[in-house]
Design a protein around this nucleic acid. Structure first.
Lengths: 166, 166
DNA sequence: GCGAAATACATCCACGTGGATGTAACAATC
DNA sequence: GATTGTTACATCCACGTGGATGTATTTCGC
């Protein structure tokens, strides 16, 4: 082998794109683990758990609200919601004033399943950030929130497809 | 609407899973933008650009080395490498001592395409982290590297599928 | 050195993804 | 109050994904 893995990583995390590369690495590595887990143990895509999390935490929210918390295409959310309903983990109630809107509520079983998953995801979070002190974790969170609130995240001038209108 | 988007985000980023949720948000939001860009403007999945980046930056590396930098399933890398070769952006040379291994090298055209993309991704990085000062960016990078080097990332006890052997 | 295990990569195929489009309902403009 | 635009969600379908498996080669154990 001409390149050592450690060299590749060290050099890449020192390059111009180091911030993006380091963040991507964390994400990709974690996805490998969590995708597999949710598929194998719960027979569902990761985004179904995200949606369930949102519904349990914010009962009565709409599908479009889930989208604001977990930025995914609208049809992915729609599919996830359908799945949760088929499993009997959530119920829906059409808004009285706006019949397009469906409020989502967790069932008792849905809450139970979420609690079970959430406990494991919490342990997973500890695994990932275990190397950081409490202060460093807070620092990390602070920086993430600053990036999110910066607003450059959801839309882009740099990566707008060339044939895309403003 | 019963929940304000800002309330949902603020409350979630204060919950037990705040570290994971904040990091996920950044990733998902960015993916929306970059997936679309690479698909539309270059007719290729994001991981093809990742692979091209790796080959240009580390000429002669193997497909399995790409995997250590961009943690993805082996077949995804294999597909990306095939695509790059079809487009004439990389060439391969079989290792003399181990005929299973193929060293990957960028073509001139491959380097040109990468330079073009990289310039835009660099601008994208600035958009994302534009809200952070230089010191904060370095702090962010430092924390990411610490998480990566912590080692809890690539495998998991918490999210091991129950029927999986150690 | 021979069989077993491991490694590098390719291929198969069921399934999830996401852009595009459809449907229905509400809102705005005049 | 008809037209136009927008919003909430569902559905379609081409394509990428990734676990499983295959193939060839190399290495390990004894």
């Amino acid at each position: 082998m001409r390149y050592e893995t450690d060299d590749i990583l060290r050099e890449t995390f020192s390059s111009d794109l180091r911030y993006l590369m380091a963040a991507s690495f964390i994400v990709l590595a974690n996805n490998q683990v969590s995708n597999r887990f949710f598929e194998k143990d719960y027979g569902m895509p990761v985004h179904a758990w995200s949606a369930l999390y949102a519904v349990v935490r914010f009962p009565g929210l709409l599908a479009r609200d889930i989208q604001s918390l977990f930025p995914r295409p609208q049809n992915s959310i729609s599919r996830a919601v359908s799945l949760l309903r088929e499993r009997g983990w959530i119920t829906t109630r059409t808004n009285e004033d706006d019949s397009r809107a469906k409020h989502l509520f967790p069932t008792d079983e849905g809450r139970r399943v979420l609690a079970e998953i959430e406990a494991r995801v919490l342990r997973r979070q500890d695994e990932i950030f275990g190397g950081l002190s409490a202060a460093e974790r807070d620092q990390f969170l602070h920086l993430c929130r600053k990036v999110i609130e910066g607003g450059g995240l959801r839309s882009s001038d740099a990566l707008r497809p060339t044939d895309d209108p403003q």
